[in-house]
Amino acid sequence: MRLPREAHTERPWRIHEITRDFRIEDVWSFRTPGAGADDFPVMLAAVRAGGRSDQESRVARVLFAVRRRLGDLFGWDEPRDAVGGRVRSLRERLPRDLFETVDGTERDDLPLTPVYRLPDEEARELANRTVHAVMHLGWIPTGDGGYELRMAVLVKPNGLFGRLYMAFIAPFRHLIVYPALTRQWERAWRDRDSLLG
């Protein structure tokens, strides 16, 4: 479910310390029935296990394929434009206690690079010619004794082209990509026992 920006800004997340020059693009919540305070690592593991591209909706797969093709055609995703190329990693901004929470060389199947990880929040980043983006995941008490996953996407568009690109893809994100991601991640939570075996 899409949430207002305040659902992210009102929380005392550590991400605020290092993203003052980024804007909040989107905030979404994901239901995790039966989740407890210590289940954030379980949710992250379930998302990784159940978040493969072959599990995405057909429409989302088509959109990502079109985006990859356009990126190849116009050179939007060249290594020189990635984190460590055109932009410096947010890891360079981290205080020591956050820096030590992940190995800077850590990689997994997700297209974003880990910045830091805490018991109730994680940040990952990516950059290309259009934008430097951060995906922040947080674990939130729901008020009924449970917990849910929240995702905030923070961006720093690369000039006018980056701002126009973000405006152009907004309807696709809101109407197709995030609803499909919501179904996929909520299913990963429900299926966590079989996914994590």
Rank of each mutant, 00 (worst) to 15 (best):
R69K: 08
V131F: 09
W28C: 15
L3S: 07
E186S: 09
M135C: 11
R86F: 00
P179A: 08
P171G: 08
L110S: 13
T32M: 15
I169M: 10
F22R: 14
T182K: 13
L90A: 03
L164G: 05
L154I: 05
V102M: 00
L44D: 08
R14N: 11
G146H: 13
F64P: 00
W139R: 10
L73F: 04
V42T: 15
L94Q: 02
R93T: 13
I24R: 14
T182F: 00
P119G: 04
D21Y: 11
R31F: 10
P41Y: 02
P111Q: 00
R20S: 15
R173P: 01
T182R: 13
G162C: 10
A152E: 03
R23M: 14
L110M: 03
A7V: 10
L90H: 01
Q184C: 03
L196D: 13
A35Q: 01
D191E: 13
V47T: 06
L137C: 01
R68D: 14
L175G: 12
R192F: 04
W185P: 00
V131E: 10
E106N: 01
V153L: 11
A123V: 09
E78M: 08
H136E: 01
D26T: 15
W13V: 07
R91L: 04
A46D: 06
D54H: 13
P119V: 04
R93K: 14
A60Y: 05
D72S: 04
N128K: 07
G75L: 01
R183V: 07
P114L: 05
R61L: 03
S194P: 04
R124C: 09
P157A: 03
R52W: 02
V66K: 07
P141L: 08
A188T: 04
G36M: 07
M151N: 09
R129I: 02
R80E: 12
V87A: 07
A133H: 00
L175M: 14
R88H: 05
P33M: 07
R23Y: 11
R91N: 12
R88S: 09
R31G: 14
L175D: 11
Y147Q: 00
R58E: 09
L195W: 13
R20E: 15
P157S: 05
R187H: 08
F99H: 13
T105L: 14
Y116I: 01
V102T: 14
L196N: 11
P41R: 12
G162T: 09
E17M: 11
V83F: 02
L94D: 02
P179I: 07
D103P: 11
P141A: 06
T142M: 03
